[in-house]
Design a protein around this nucleic acid. Structure first.
Length: 449
RNA sequence: GGAGAGGUAGCGAAGUCCGGCCGUAACGCGCUCGACUCGAAAUCGAGUUACGGGUACCCCCCGUACGUGGGUUCGAAUCCCACCCUCUCCGCCA
């Protein structure tokens, strides 16, 4: 059976009724064929060791097999009509039938080989990361990410500012010990004001995006199937980062980007629907495999945290403007909270698998004396749209095109709570509630020990 | 958990019992273009799947796809097996 690469394939076991007919090809097959140098160069810039030649060899083999098998199939189809005619006319067709038995056996053989090559090719393609935009600066690691801009004044303290977990515990808001008892490490119980602050932040963020930025608020599943995880690029490569339900091909989302972006998988959008702006407040689950020893204390790196996520579907001509807009939306939250931050651009060595260009927003944490990531905004161009098969119908052409998808945190709620704690702490051990949040906190201005 | 119905183009839907002239897929809707009209509606006419391969522009030719995967057969939307999804009723449940 012939598995088309760019369209209606079905590499995944789980396939929704109608809207998951998407192929899960990662890169444009044609791009690989026509311009392998570009891909080779892109992989090199990312520091990947994937060998483009390996793919090209497979593709040659695939084409040769297709040529052979299709010739036989054409012959078989012709003979089929002939057999039908002879039988209708009550004539003997056994000679053709015998010959076709041989042809069919050969077809079956070749189809088997073809399937193997296509599966291997697909596996290879699925492991290729997106091609970074040509403007993305070269770099080998996060140390090479250039600053883009800074905002706000770092607060000054006439005492040694505490880290958030210390302050949170002293104010009886954060309880890591009991969370460890309930589950294990990297979980937290939030109590009283800290629980409400979490809710206030989420609500404040959602309200801002909905009423000021034009986003549509969504509630989506936070457990999704394998196809959905593949559509946005979490699978097949990063399975170990995910929590998976036992005995199910279901996964807990590491970000609402996954369900929000896949909302339109297998669909064709209207050009004038753009830009489509969705946001959602969801829990996020990450195994944090490989991060042993990193941020072991506090709320920074948890197995479960809440995030308000923004997802855009954009016209290819406007997706980079959309990325600037989305980043500004995330920054707005920090500005309203009066939290100092900086924006950096991820270099080729640090950019995520699915992204073509990414801005990270880092908030200032006085307790840690560092900027820490609180948002990441990416333009994935058509990378996810290909995998999830999200197209749109341009007005001025017949050909359907892939949409561009973007995603960004707006913001990670837990980390925002950390930033509020560390930036708004007072000498007497109390915590001032940022003005923007007070309406959501029943007017509360200060949390005291 | 029990019983039943269903999955075919952008949508609805025929075809499945009795395998082949039924997949550029009947019929209807929608959409595009044209005719009529001052213009519009109505009406009439024409067009309208995706991908892969040959030719890496178009045309054209060939192949594949009727939820998914397998089986039977010279040949499968149609017959057989397994699975997925949707809907209805019953039971249970926040």
């Amino acid at each position: 059976m012939n598995l088309p690469f760019i369209s209606a394939a079905t590499c995944c076991i789980h396939r929704g009724a109608k809207n998951h007919s998407g192929d899960d090809t990662m890169l444009d097959l044609k791009l690989m064929q026509k311009n392998p140098e570009l891909v080779r160069e892109s992989l090199k810039r990312r520091g990947s060791t994937l060998d483009v030649q390996e793919f090209l060899t497979m593709d040659e083999k695939r084409k040769a097999l297709i040529a052979e098998v299709e010739e036989l199939k054409a012959e078989r189809n012709k003979a089929g009509g002939e057999i039908a005619r002879l039988k209708r006319e009550k004539q003997d067709a056994s000679e053709i039938m015998e010959r076709m038995a041989v042809v069919s056996a050969r077809v079956k053989e070749l189809d088997g080989e073809l399937n193997e090559v296509e599966a291997a090719e697909k596996e290879w393609l699925m492991a290729v990361p997106n091609i970074p935009h040509e403007d993305v600066p070269f770099g080998e690691s996060e140390d090479d990410n250039p600053d883009v801009r800074y905002w706000g004044e770092k607060p000054t303290f006439d005492f040694a500012p505490k880290e958030h977990w210390e302050l949170g515990a002293e104010l009886d808001g954060l309880d890591f010990e009991r969370a460890a008892k309930l589950t294990g490490s990297r979980f937290c119980v939030q109590k009283g004001w800290a629980a409400r602050l979490e809710r206030a932040l989420a609500q404040f963020m959602l309200d801002t995006h909905v009423t000021e930025h034009g986003y549509t608020e969504m509630v989506v599943p936070t457990i999704v199937n394998r196809t959905t995880m593949t559509g946005t690029g979490q699978l097949p490569k990063f399975e170990e980062d995910l929590f998976k339900l036992e005995n199910w091909e279901y996964y807990m989302i590491p970000t609402a980007e996954v369900p929000l972006t896949n909302l339109y998988s297998g669909e064709v959008l209207d050009e004038d629907q753009f830009p489509i702006l969705f946001c959602a407040h969801t829990p996020c689950y990450r195994s944090e495999a490989g991060s042993y020893g990193k941020d072991t204390k506090g709320l920074i790196r948890q197995h479960q945290f809440y995030k308000v996520e923004m997802v855009n579907f954009a016209h290819p001509d406007h997706s980079y403007q959309a990325l600037e807009n989305m980043t500004a939306c995330a920054e707005t939250i920090l500005k309203k909270l009066k939290l100092p931050y900086r924006v950096i651009e991820l270099c080729t060595g640090d950019i995520g698998f699915s992204a073509a260009k990414t801005y990270d927003i880092e908030v200032w944490l006085p307790g840690q004396d560092k900027y820490r990531e609180i948002s990441s905004c990416s333009n994935c161009e058509d990378f996810q749209a290909r995998r999830a098969n999200i197209k749109f119908q341009p007005k001025d052409s017949k050909k359907k095109l892939y949409a561009h998808t973007l995603n960004g945190s707006g913001l990670a709620v837990g980390r925002t709570l950390v930033a509020v704690l560390e930036n708004y702490q007072q000498a007497d051990g109390s915590l001032v509630i940022p003005e923007a949040l007070r309406p959501y906190m029943g007017g509360l201005e200060v949390v005291t020990p």
